[in-house]
């Protein structure tokens, strides 16, 4: 019984939140890695692209709510997603045409593009604050739980509850759909293959008659869509604050670098590695330990390896370990 309780506590506080957060990071990192593969720079504006898209989604959610439209037990934000994606895709395409394209034509060094993207990051950051302000926003509605703690306890007779929030279930399902769709697109469609070819060997892709402008545009649209979805899922699961999204940049980068920049599969693996490490290292293990260990060994402290303030240190440490021991990442990026 104690063992089952421990297992449920582990699932409830570590595995489920870790998987949800991991899915969000994976979607964010996929965008970063696709842009890196095709445009060959680390896009510092990605966190703020996520924030911008989420802000638009929130505005539409409010609009729908004011019209009395809802999505039954699911969050209304899912209905607003396409509008957020459209607006964000338009914004990044305009950014590309107005800003990045010039440097591409010049064949500027990647670091110049990184700096330019940092400039774009601050403009977007300011835009988001202008649009929606700096305060915390909660925009989750619909049913709160897919499985609530009391039902679980009553059904199993365990002392520990197992809770599955609707937002967590939505996150995982949406992430699976997105990843499957993305891989289908990259592996099976002509445009998807041309994107991979362009990322693999730009000169040869040009020789083969692949249109670079089209590849770049498609990449931006996909990256924007992934960013908006990742940002919205994160906001539903936790809450929306522009500054937090800026800080998401580091775990998202860490995930992309761990997997190997340019490798979509790596980005997904990286997302889960970073998220689970973060949760495992910042979780107070006292509860689980109390169930598993005999009373005589019961822990005094919280058994928390790192305070939650240091979440950022986890992504950073993973990043450093990867840079030290395998700079091209697990899946051999560029």
């Amino acid at each position: 019984m104690d063992f089952l309780n421990a297992l449920v506590a582990l699932l409830n506080f570590v595995v489920i939140p870790g998987v949800a957060y991991g899915s969000q990071l994976a979607l964010g990192a996929l965008g970063v890695t696709l842009i890196f593969g095709v445009l060959r720079f680390s896009n510092f504006a990605h966190g703020d692209t996520m924030a911008f898209g989420t802000a638009i989604v929130i505005m539409f959610t409010w609009l729908f709510q004011s019209w009395g439209i809802s999505f039954g037990p699911l969050p209304t934000a899912l209905l607003a997603l396409p509008f957020g994606i459209a607006a964000t895709a338009a914004l990044v395409l305009a950014t590309d045409a107005g800003i990045y394209k010039f440097y591409r034509r010049q064949k500027a060094a990647p670091i110049i593009l990184v700096i330019v993207s940092a400039g774009v990051m601050f403009v977007m950051n300011g835009l988001v604050r202008l649009i929606i302000g700096v305060e915390e926003r909660n925009f989750t509605d619909g049913a709160r739980f897919l499985l609530d703690g009391n039902t679980f306890k009553a059904a199993t007779g365990l002392a520990e509850p197992l809770v599955i929030k609707t937002t967590v279930a939505v996150t995982v399902v949406v992430a699976v759909i997105c990843v499957a769709a993305l891989f289908w697109f990259l592996q099976k469609t002509r445009t998807g293959k041309s994107m991979r070819a362009f990322s693999d060997n730009e000169d040869l892709a040009l020789l083969s008659g692949i249109n670079p402008d089209r590849v770049v545009q498609v990449t931006w649209i996909i990256a924007a869509a992934l960013a908006v979805i990742a940002g919205t899922l994160y906001g539903l699961d936790k809450s929306f604050r522009p500054f937090v999204y800026f800080q998401l940049l580091l775990p998202v980068f860490a995930a992309a670098v761990v997997g190997g920049l340019g490798s979509p599969l790596g980005a997904i693996a990286g997302g889960y590695i970073v998220a689970l490490s973060e949760v495992v290292l910042t979780y107070a293990w006292k509860k689980v330990a109390t169930y598993v260990l005999p009373d005589s060994l019961a822990p005094d402290g919280l058994m928390q390896l790192l305070s939650t303030d240091y979440k950022v240190a986890v992504s950073f440490s993973i990043l450093i370990i990867v840079l030290l021991f395998m700079p091209t990442g697990i899946f051999k990026g560029k």
Binding site: R190, K193, S194, R196, A197, S199, D200, N201, D203, L204, A205, S208, G209, I210
Partner: peptide, 20 residues
């Protein structure tokens, strides 16, 4: 040099050759 798409299958390489 750099005359193939190393990350793609042989068949995909040929497909890309026929892109136009």
């Amino acid at each position: 040099t750099h005359n193939i798409f190393t990350g793609m299958t042989v068949e995909e390489n040929l497909e890309m050759g026929a892109f136009i």
